[in-house]
Structures are given as C-alpha cells and as structure tokens.
C-alpha cells in the first residue's frame, strides 16, 4: 500500500525528516508516536503534498505509484486522505457542496459518472449515522464556527465519504475531551476494512485505547528510532518518551 524509503525533507531549509523508512500493508493500522517537534506532522504533510515541504532524498510508493510526483489533488484522488490536525475554516463554501465536489472529482478521476443528487444524499445519510454527525453542521460553511470536536468529526465524516485506501490521521485526538474522543474513535473503527490502511499520528497513547494499532513506531529527531506492537505504546505511556530518547541521545554523544 505505502512504502516510504529513506525520506529526507526540509522546511525553510531546515532538515526535519532525516531518513524515514516505513512499510504499510493493506488493512494495517500503524501508529506513529513521538515527542513534540520530532517530525510527525511533517511526515503527514510530506505525504499529502504540502508545497512548503521539500523532499531532498528518498521515495514514496503508493499502490505502486511514485507518490511524490503527484499533485496534492491527485494524491487525494488516488485514495490518500489526510485528516488535518487543524482543519481550516472556509467561510462561504458550504460543507455539503464541498464534499459533493470532492466525491465527484474522485469519481471523475476513476472514470465514473458523478453521483446524482439522490445517491449522494443516500450516501451522506449513511455516513452521517456512521460517524455521528448532524445535518446542521453540514449545511454550514466548512468548519466555520465549529468546536474542536466538531471539526475533527467533520474530518472523519469526509474520510467516510471519500473512502480512501490510506487515511493519515494527524493528531486527530488533540484538543478532544473524552466524549468527543470516543465518538471520533468509534467513527474511525467503523471505517476499518481489510484493505484500508490507517496511519495514526499521535502524541498520546490514549487514542490507542480506542483504536488498536497493529504496529507502533516512535519518531524522534526525524527518524523512526523504535518500532513494535501496541505494547510499545503502553510502555511509552508508563515510562514516557525519555526512556527511549535518552538512550538515543547518549549513543549520539558517544
């Protein structure tokens, strides 16, 4: 599904990612954890194609295609979805029209006819129930005046509508209270399928109580320094990041 090989990336001339390697197979859920500033969100942005990020080395294959050669919109239409850490408010663009445009752009890319109004509505209803989001939010402008939890739920709703092959959830748990976290996590769990892969980016272990990952990786100073199963997350929760980072920093100093 996704194969990241030795990715190095700069932002404003500063190297943030220093050689990342990661393989995600269809249906797998990977969690990337790490202290603040380790490069987690940069990795998400590089995969989504954000233009300020310059990839200086390495390659990324997505379903066999060279991801880095694709435009932002083509990556999305190929089935990559990024749930934003800070979803943007766009006054004046209705959420429903926007999602309809996005769904139909993807269909067009796949050589399918656009959905007619009835089918689109039916799909909306179905997915709204799945992620527990109300009509009132969707008839408003994109994220305008939404609470933090509503914004995150809207991201998961868009994921449900766009049915991606790979979803990257960038700190989707940040800023959520426990109830909102549960709703969002339930939505994500319902979207798990045998061939949909998920990359969870998170600072805290608590999201992983709700969404059980197959693999956990620790990102530190632009590299994956430790990988393991979900037990690694529990260990991190218990001991903090220091137990890993200190040993890395020591060996670097030797």
């Amino acid at each position: 599904m996704l194969s990241i090989k030795n990715i190095h990336a700069n932002v404003e001339g500063k190297e943030i990612l220093k050689g990342i390697n990661l393989e995600i197979k269809p249906g797998e859920v990977h969690a990337i954890m790490g202290p603040n500033g380790s490069g987690k969100s940069t990795l998400a942005s590089v995969l989504a194609g954000r233009e300020e990020y310059e990839v200086t080395e390495g390659e990324v294959l997505f379903s066999g295609k060279d991801l880095l050669e694709l435009s932002i919109e083509d990556r999305a239409r190929e089935g990559l979805f990024l749930a934003f850490q800070y979803p943007v408010e766009i006054p004046g663009v209705s959420t429903t029209n926007f999602i309809k445009a996005a769904v139909n752009e993807k269909r067009k890319y796949q050589g399918l006819e656009p959905l007619d109004a009835v089918s689109f509505l039916k799909m909306m209803k179905e997915k709204m129930a799945m992620v527990e989001i109300g009509q009132s939010l969707l008839s408003r402008s994109i994220n305008e005046g939404f609470s933090g939890g509503e914004k995150k739920r809207n991201e998961i709703f868009q994921m449900a509508m766009l049915e991606p092959k790979l979803a990257i959830l960038d700190e989707t748990d940040s800023g959520l209270d426990i109830d909102a976290l549960r709703i969002v996590a339930n939505g994500i769990n319902k979207l798990r399928t045998p061939d949909r892969s998920i990359l969870l980016i998170t600072h805290y272990q608590r999201l992983l109580d709700y969404i059980q990952p197959d693999y956990v990786h620790v990102l530190y100073k632009g590299r994956i320094v430790k990988s393991g199963t979900k037990e690694l997350a529990l260990e991190l929760e218990e001991k903090g990041y220091d137990f890993i980072t200190e040993s890395i920093d020591q060996s670097a100093n030797v």
Partner: peptide, 21 residues
C-alpha cells in the same frame, strides 16, 4: 491546500474560494 487535499483541482478550488468571497 485543504480543498486540494480533498481532491479538488487547484483551478476549481480557486473558483470555490472566489465564490465564497
């Protein structure tokens, strides 16, 4: 960026934002 990340091509995203304006 947000609109494009949902698969809406740049030109269409610009038109959407101009409409919104």
């Amino acid at each position: 960026y947000y609109l494009r990340a949902r698969g809406i091509p740049k030109e269409k995203a610009e038109v959407l934002l101009l409409h919104a304006f």
